[in-house]
Amino acid sequence: MGVLFQLAAYGCGLLTIAVLVMMFQLGRPLFVDGQFFSLLSQVWQPGQQLYGIYPMIIGSIRISFLALALSFPVSLGTAFLAAGLAPRPMQRWVLAMVRLMAGIPTVVYGFVAIFLLVPLVREHVSRGSGLNILTASLVLAVLIAPTMVVFFVNGLRGVDQSYCRATDALGATAVQRLLYLQLPQGWPTIVSGVIMGLGRAMGDTLVSLMVAGNSIGVPTSIVDSARTLTAHIALVIAADFASMEFASIFACGLVLYLFTMAVVIGLRMLVHLRTGSDR
């Protein structure tokens, strides 16, 4: 029986590595003679044999960082309420609301955005089609907020109770306790939350596919239509298997895989930092 457990664990681990190997294998036509790196800086123009994914990388980065920037203050504010500023019973309600939001399917966010947010952005902000980076970022900001709030609350509440009592005894207000005790003490978890939020924004497919416009140009402003790496995979997946277009989606997959690895390793280093500072 123990062997079976071991087999299952090793199997899952191997599969994770197999995904990486498979991406390499199937994207191989594009990787010969170190082409991979030139792909990262080329434009996408299949008509002229250019299969670069630079526009999608820029699209993904712009959209996810803007989403993060929009979501951070909102999430931090909500976390402040849930971790001390709001009256006790309300703290629970705030957390319940956040959990409920985490349960809303991604495709539903996208669906509502198309009919509610896109016309608003079109008429009042961009004067373009309304399908652009800003719209996608606004939706993603709401989408990643629950993840961030949960991490922030854990970080803020994770402070040793004795410290809290000490500040309270010194006559600190709830705001002061948050600002000068909980925030400085909980920052590694807060940073973890930010990284997780970024990871979710970067990895999301449906929202950007539905509301970012999917144009193949390199976006120059936040009201430009753009295509993300994930949306590119979803759009090109059905292409001819032997073509270079098809191979390019594995380059996208690979970039996303490596990004995930960077996120996970970054989080681990944060954890080490935290346990290190405890000592």
Partner: peptide, 22 residues
């Protein structure tokens, strides 16, 4: 133009144009 929005089907094109006055 590369700035063009890209949609995935005839149905999607029709829906997009029906929803976008411009």
């Amino acid at each position: 133009s590369k700035k063009a929005n890209v949609v995935v089907s005839n149905g999607a094109m029709k829906t997009a144009i029906a929803n976008d006055p411009y």
